[in-house]
């Protein structure tokens, strides 16, 4: 059966744990001199990136290469995609190239879902619009487990632009699946209408939540949110929702500070906090490679995928 990783909800607790356990072994590979496994020899992984994201693309590329897959980078800029080729035509092109997996980053929410309806290989969502970024949530969970030894029962506070954040969506969903207790904190303007259906607590007050947090995850705040009046200005945002040394002092002793990057130092996170011993920001990058190796291995390493779910929402039967 064809399977994909499009949403954190494509995983259940067992398969998510399998990813994390597998990533643990993959992480050991990073400590060796020969950082390569023959496992995906002869498999082709296409990185289809409609948005610039050197960080995520490089992470997937390294993960695939460490597993000996052939990697094709297909970026929207300078390709037929920028000349108006439709997503479906691009999908059929990748299909013809024999892609076993397509790693898709797209500015439109749901684009990887559509892609999954058109390609034979597995589709991995590498971030779609303001929807989801499941491998980021997996690497965040992996980082928490490595630092704190568990995920179940952890109180995880996610602070920032929840409305537009695919990282927040995937993290809330995955943390719930893994038995943690997420809380999202943001000004009300940056929380989506309908958030009451999410498996998370919601707060406007970071100072009330920090003392009860094992993990605090800060999200990047973009300047255009200010110009669109989501908040008055960066100074006020930083004062009300930024993580500085004073706020860090309110955290329990062993709490950690996370950030998916790229950071706005001095806005959502103070430099001294980002560089402190509590910060896992550099580890998150390294863990990203391990987790993506695990995902690629579990999707492509065998006769059929061990994780993921069939494409959701395949439409009416008349479409081939």
């Amino acid at each position: 059966m064809k399977r994909h990783l499009l949403s954190a909800t494509d995983l259940d607790r067992e398969s998510a744990t399998l990813v994390l356990d597998t990533a643990e072994e993959m992480a050991r590979l990073g400590e060796r001199s020969i950082k390569k496994l023959p496992t995906l020899r002869g498999r082709t992984v296409v990185n289809l990136f409609y948005e610039d994201s050197t960080r995520t693309r490089t992470s997937f590329e390294l993960a695939a290469k460490r597993l000996s897959a052939d990697v094709i980078n297909f970026s929207a800029k300078g390709s037929s995609v920028s000349k108006g080729e439709s997503l479906k035509d691009t999908a059929l092109t990748l299909e013809a190239m024999g892609a076993d997996a397509v790693v898709c980053r797209h500015s439109g929410s749901g684009a990887p879902h559509r892609l999954a309806q058109w390609v034979k290989g597995s589709v991995v969502n590498a971030g779609d619009g303001t929807h989801e970024h499941p491998t980021q949530a997996l690497l965040d969970a992996f980082t928490m487990r490595r630092r704190l030894g568990r995920i179940e029962g952890l109180r995880v506070t996610i602070v920032g632009d929840i409305l537009h954040s695919r990282v927040a969506r995937s993290n809330v969903l995955l943390l719930d699946i893994l038995g943690a207790h997420p809380t999202v904190v943001a000004p009300p303007t940056l929380l989506p209408v309908g958030i009451e259906a999410w498996p998370t607590e919601v707060s406007y007050d970071i100072d009330a939540v920090l003392p009860k947090s094992d993990v605090v995850m800060m999200l990047r705040v973009q300047n255009e949110r200010m110009t669109a009046s989501y908040f008055p200005n960066v100074r006020e945002y930083s004062r009300r929702y930024g993580l500085d040394a004073r706020r860090v002092a309110a955290l329990p002793d062993d709490a950690i500070v996370m950030h998916p990057g790229p950071m706005n130092r001095g806005v959502e996170i103070a430099a001294e906090v980002a560089d402190s011993a509590r910060s896992t920001i550099v580890e998150q990058v390294a863990n990203g490679v391990s987790v993506r190796m695990a995902v690629l291995y579990l999707l492509l390493g065998g006769s059929e995928p061990a994780i993921g779910s069939p494409a959701a929402g395949s439409t009416e039967g008349e479409r081939p």
Partner: peptide, 18 residues
């Protein structure tokens, strides 16, 4: 805006149309 604003748009990450 892409779809009705509410629980479903919040989940799907599609910009809401109130």
């Amino acid at each position: 805006a892409q779809m009705n604003e509410g629980v479903v748009s919040a989940r799907l990450g599609l910009a809401g149309w109130p």
